[in-house]
Structures are given as structure tokens and as C-alpha cells.
């Protein structure tokens, strides 16, 4: 799906746990998620911390949309 959105000229960030799959299928902007059962947040760390993690990841993913890339890029760190 991610490729078709890119193909249409709409920038898209793929937030996903299994980054290797995302790289194999050809996503261009990738933000690694926390885990399969909870991609955005970590309920085992309490609600406040979980929300904080989600906020960081979503913010990073949004900022990734503003970064010009010419190849598949994994945004590992906040920037």
C-alpha cells in the first residue's frame, strides 16, 4: 500500500515493527515501531510513559515527511 501512496506523489511514512519487511517491499520513509502487539507506545511502562513514546514516534514520523529522500531511509533517532 505504502508504495502506491508514494507513487501518487503523497509522501508517506511507514511506521512498522518489522523494518526488514518494509525495506523488502520498498517503503521509502520508515520509522521503526515499538513492537507488533503495540506499535505506538508501551503499555508495560505505564500510561504516561507509553503516551510519551507514542508522541515521540508520531512526531518523528511526521517530521520524516518533510525530509527530502532519494532512497529508502530508516529514521532511527528523533531529529
Amino acid at each position: 500500500m505504502v508504495k502506491e501512496i508514494d507513487r501518487a506523489g503523497i509522501p508517506v511514512t511507514h511506521i512498522c515493527t518489522v523494518v526488514p519487511i518494509s525495506l523488502t517491499i520498498g517503503a521509502n520513509r520508515i520509522v521503526p515501531a515499538v513492537g507488533i502487539p503495540y506499535p505506538l507506545g508501551d503499555p508495560t511502562k505505564g500510561e504516561k510513559k507509553s503516551h510519551e513514546i507514542r508522541e515521540h514516534l508520531v512526531t518523528r514520523a511526521l517530521k520524516a515527511l518533510t525530509v527530502p529522500v532519494d532512497k529508502q531511509t530508516v529514521f532511527e533517532e528523533d531529529f
Binding site: 503523497i10 508517506v12 511514512t13 511506521i15 512498522c16 507488533i36 502487539p37 506499535p39 511526521l62
Partner: peptide, 13 residues
């Protein structure tokens, strides 16, 4: 496109 979406976040588990 019709809704003039500028960017997409796609979340996969």
C-alpha cells in the same frame, strides 16, 4: 487526493 491529503502515516503491526 480528492480530499487534498498532503501526507500519510501508515502504521503496521
Amino acid at each position: 487526493k480528492k480530499d487534498r491529503v498532503d501526507g500519510v502515516l501508515l502504521v503496521s503491526t
